[in-house]
Structure formats: structure tokens, C-alpha cells
Nucleic acid binder design. Structure first.
Lengths: 339, 339
DNA sequence: CTGAAAGCGCTTACAG
DNA sequence: CTGAAAGCGCTTACAG
């Protein structure tokens, strides 16, 4: 494999000139630049990654830690992973993938061997053990998700509070006055990821503010769980005409099936909004209105923030991404209003 | 960050001794080894990755190319990615993740800059453009999946032919004599991934050999598609008592729903086997018998083969992984036999 | 606008 | 069993 010396010889210049021509870090005569470019092309030259890391003390590699929890939805994780990789490449960074088995040890390892320039953390939980490592390493790092203690950390996440309000606002606009929230499984509201309680609390709060009757129920991803949740909400809200789902994907299909059996028409008798979902709600019958979990923009923004940290100092902060509402066919004015 | 010179000084030895002690490439006196280990621990020393790559001309990094096609099932891809990463780590390799946008350019880039020691390719299609690159690069590489032309390539995949036979054998054992195959969407049987036709052909062949009536129908992942497929099979097999699914995950749920509406009991009136599925069939009602797509063992084996190639010459070859059958609650003797 | 040279931190023959 | 030293292929002050 050709090296920089070969290129220099063919182009008739010194290796430093080749290096500078390639990095653009100092002005090079047009003619020289051309000869170097030709030599590079002719020899199929690519700078050796290891030599570059060693001499330049930067690797152009980002670590991406993507653990799988029990409640991790694989397609969601995949969407975030792809988003981060794509964004990283656009800044000329490669991505080293670290998984659960190596949550903290892996981070320590790649950081202290100077294998990576920065870190992007996925699927952050409230008391994530990785946050301590990231603080300790002092490497440019961005979390996608918000841990309990954000002190000294830079985080990116969907604005779950705004998403909760948006889901409700949309239904209120249509005339609904009694809206239930089918939540995740109970365990998610204890420790673990904090987006679930964030959503729930804002939802209930927004209901209070707008004078809407609201109720919340956890939901297990089984038929029984869905029925229990639905019945629980109806018990609290006898006139419920709409339900917001902030829950597991599987629950969506089960709910639609239960409603079909009970001959509850969607959206005629019950409107449905899926909030903060990473999956397509297009194939459901009917397609469900959705406030998507913005994998692409989260990944993009996270990488941007790492790159900015690499370029200079950035104050640790939390960035919330504004939710968007996608209208499909699962919402309508409440039946009572329609009569 | 401490370097090898620091360690050598603290341990009172030369840097070459430190290096050899760490790599184990030559015998070191027990006492010396201990002092070095202490120094390493005391200083929190980790060899610099770039320096190691440059001096050792190996990176301990594997490239993993994981493109997303239209018909890629994200959870499946995720399962393979995790399996490869986990296996790689067990051999002390890290994994650099390459995605679609960089299918061939990315491989060329990381290979010619000596960023990676080997390549694992996921989701290989019949006429995969990456195979040409892999052949040209001459880097240790293993494909998970089988392209049209395997010349010079090492491939690992589930034995789809055996899986097809196994699914049918199980049903025959139960007494079924008329079994339909609900396949993937039509486009998958043209170009693209070749596992679908491999499964179909073996299924039909096995049916012929065992004197069982079989039929095949492509299936679109919509309600209409599923009904069309089911009705199509029934038209060909009026006495059909079992169906093998080698198709999209979404089709499973839709099929169960259609059957429920039509009051076809599973497994009493119709047995179902899901073949080569990467997802859990546990949560369906009833849980569906499955021949899983072995993500874990495929990833494990692929990495092993790359590592073997790294260690010495390995003849390019195709390795098929034997299918396993997991009994759940979706199969039973045919109703006619039960009567 | 360009070059000669030091140095990044390792690995690995070469020597003893 | 251990050390001195070359060398991997770059980047980047230092000089002109």
C-alpha cells in the first residue's frame, strides 16, 4: 500500500507538503496541489489510520454505546444507531459500536486507549451507570436521553413534556373533553428511563390546565394488560372519547383488535394518538396519528454537539427537540359532538 | 495519559520488556511480570491504539457492514449486529459500523486506510455490490447470507433448505398431509435476497418427496395481502390443515386476526409454523411454533471465521447452520385426524 | 509557498 | 531472560 513518501516522490514534493495539501491546513500552490492530487489518485493513496491517530492525536472515531434493556424496542434502537452513524459520517467520523456487555468497561477501554475522540450514548436511563464514566473521562460526549442527574452532561432528547401537551392539544382541538393515557408497563415508571413519567406528568398537568378530564393507566403488553388498561381508564373516565398511547408497540395492535371485537369504531367512537413512537403506525387499521420519536434529528444533533465539543468548549446543557404531529386516520371529533 | 515509557520506568525495565510482558510474546521472569503488572495498574496504563496499529500493523477492529433494505426487518438486523459485536469482543476485537450509504465506499475507505483487520457483511443479497469489493480488497471477510456467486468468499447462513424440510417434517409427524407456504412479498423472489426462494423450493421439493400436498403463495404485508395469500393457498389445497410462514413479521399478527374473524381455530383447525423468523413468536395468541433465524450463532461463527482467516489461511467456503425447531402452541394433529 | 526534522507510542527483529 | 534501537506513517512546529 502506497504511503505518504511514495506520494511525495511521485509529486516531487516533501511529505509535509503532501500532508498539508491533504489536510488543507496551510496554503499550497495550485500547481503543487494538482500534482499531489494526481499522485494520490495514481497510487490510490489513503493515509494510514493508525499513523494519523498517533501523529495527530485524534482518531476520527466516535464511540456509540447502545445497550439493550428489557424494554428496548429494537427497531427504535436501530433507527437511532443508523442516524448516529449517518450523521457521524457526514462529519468524517466513523462509529465504533459498544453494546451492553461493555457499557462502562468498553467506554473506559476505548477512551483510555485513545481509540475514540468522543462518545454518543443511546438509551440513557435515569440512573445510568455510564454517566459516571463519561464525567470521569472528560471526553466530548453527548447523551441521547436524559439521566436523573444531568450535571456536567450534554443531552439531547425529544421534548416529552411538549409531546404530551401536543397530543392532548390536538384532541382538544377536535372537541374531546375526556382523554385517557395508556402508558407503558408499570416498571418503567419506577427506576429506569424517565421519559415515561415525564410524559405522564405533563399529560395530566396539561389536562388540568385546559379543563379536560384525563386519566392514566399503565399497560402490560398482553391482551389482558391492554383490556385492564382500557377498562381502568373507562372506569375513571366514563365519557372517554380518545386515548393517547405512550407505550410499547405491541400494545397498538392488541388495542385495535380489542376495540374491533368490542365494536368500538376508530376513530368514530374512539380517537387514538400514538405518542413518541419510533415505529411506523402506517400499517395499522386505521393508520394511527403519531408524534414520532425523532431518531434522525436526535442522532444528527448529538453528533453535531460532539463535533462542536471537539472543536472547542461547549457548555454542558440539555437540548430538547420539538415534537411534531403527523395526522393519519385515527382521530376525529368525538361521537357525542358529531351527533 | 501514561505511556509505555512511564510503565517501564516505574517497573524498572525497558519498554520492550513491558511490551512483551503485555503481549505475552516472549517469556518474562515472574518477578518482572509482577512489577510490570503493578506499574500498569498504578498508572492506569492502556496501550495507545494508534501506536499499536502503526507498529503492529493490526488494528483489532472489524468492519461490520449492515445496510437497511426495504425488506430489512430492523429487529433482525439488530440481533445480528449485537451478535457480531459480542462475538468480536470475545476475541478482543472492536466493531466499526458501516451503513448503507457507505456500502462499498466505506469498505474501501476503512480497508485501504488500514483501519480494520477484517470485514463481516450482514444482509447479503443475491447480487450484492459489496462482494466485488471484498474480493478485490483481499481482506479477511465473512458474509452472513449467501450471494449468487460465492466464488472466493466465505459465507455463513442458516440452512434454509433444511429449515424448510424441518418445518414440513414436523407437520407431517403430526399427521398433516396438506400444507401451505405463505411466503414473502413477490419482489423478494425476483432479485434480492435469495433465502426466500431457497426456502420455497426446498419446501415444495420436500412435499413432493414425502407425498404431501403442498402449495406456495407470496404474501403482501397488508390485510388484503394476507387474505389473498390464504385464499390462494386454500384454492390450491382445499384440505389444507397447516400453514408454514416464511414471511414478514407483520403478516403473523394479521393472519391470526383474519383466522380469528373467520373462526378458524389455531391449532385445532389450522396449525401454524413460523420459519426463519428473527423475532419472538411468544406474544402471539397462541404462541407460534418457530424455527428461529440464528442471529447469535451466525454472528459468532462469522467472527470466528474472520479471526481464523486473520490467523492463517482458510479456504473460502459456505457454512450452513442447522435449523432448530421450537415447539410452542400453534401446532396440533389435523382436525380430520382428531375426529 | 515549501522543506527538513522531531516526535507521536508502540512492536519486533537484532543482540547479548 | 532482557535491552537498545529501528521503524511503522503520519502531523506539525520550526525555518526559510
Amino acid at each position: 500500500m502506497a504511503n505518504i513518501t511514495d506520494v511525495a516522490r511521485v509529486a516531487g514534493v516533501s511529505i509535509s507538503t503532501v500532508s498539508y495539501a491533504l489536510s488543507g491546513k496551510r496554503p499550497i500552490a495550485e500547481a503543487t496541489k494538482t500534482r499531489i492530487a494526481e499522485a494520490v489518485h495514481e497510487l490510490g493513496y489513503r493515509p494510514n489510520a493508525g499513523a494519523r491517530m498517533l501523529a495527530g492525536s485524534r482518531t476520527n472515531i466516535l464511540a456509540l454505546t447502545a445497550p439493550m434493556h428489557e424494554d428496548t424496542h429494537p427497531p427504535a434502537l436501530m433507527a437511532f444507531v443508523l442516524a448516529v452513524v449517518t450523521a457521524a459520517r457526514s462529519f468524517d467520523y466513523d462509529v465504533l459500536l459498544l453494546t451492553e456487555g461493555e457499557a462502562t468497561t468498553g467506554l473506559r477501554r476505548v477512551a483510555s486507549s485513545s481509540l475514540v475522540d468522543g462518545i454518543v450514548m443511546l438509551d440513557v436511563t435515569t440512573d445510568d451507570e455510564r454517566t459516571a464514566v463519561v464525567r470521569e473521562l472528560g471526553l466530548p460526549s453527548v447523551l441521547i436521553g436524559i439521566p436523573g442527574d444531568t450535571e456536567g452532561l450534554t443531552c439531547v432528547d425529544l421534548d416529552f413534556e411538549a409531546a404530551a401537551r401536543l397530543s392532548l392539544a390536538r384532541l382538544v382541538e377536535l372537541g374531546h373533553t375526556s382523554v385517557g393515557l395508556m402508558g407503558h408497563a408499570e416498571q418503567l415508571y419506577g427506576r429506569g428511563s424517565n421519559y415515561a413519567p415525564r410524559f405522564r406528568d405533563s399529560f395530566l398537568e396539561a389536562g388540568g390546565e385546559s379543563g379536560i378530564a384525563t386519566a392514566f393507566h399503565t399497560t402490560e403488553a398482553t391482551r389482558e394488560g391492554v383490556e385492564a388498561s382500557l377498562d381502568g381508564l373507562r372506569a375513571q373516565l366514563p365519557d372517554m372519547t380518545a386515548v393517547v398511547l405512550n407505550c410499547n408497540e405491541n400494545i397498538h395492535g392488541i388495542l385495535l383488535e380489542v376495540l374491533r371485537e368490542r365494536e368500538v369504531a376508530v376513530p368514530a367512537a374512539l380517537s387514538i394518538v400514538s405518542a413518541c413512537s419510533s415505529f411506523s403506525t402506517e400499517h395499522f387499521l386505521p393508520p394511527i396519528d403519531v408524534i414520532p420519536l425523532p431518531a434522525q434529528s436526535s442522532g444528527q444533533r448529538a453528533v453535531e454537539l460532539v463535533v462542536q465539543q471537539l472543536a472547542g468548549f461547549v457548555d454542558p446543557h440539555v437540548e430538547l427537540i420539538a415534537p411534531t404531529y403527523q395526522r393519519k386516520q385515527s382521530t376525529a371529533p368525538p361521537a357525542a359532538a358529531a351527533l
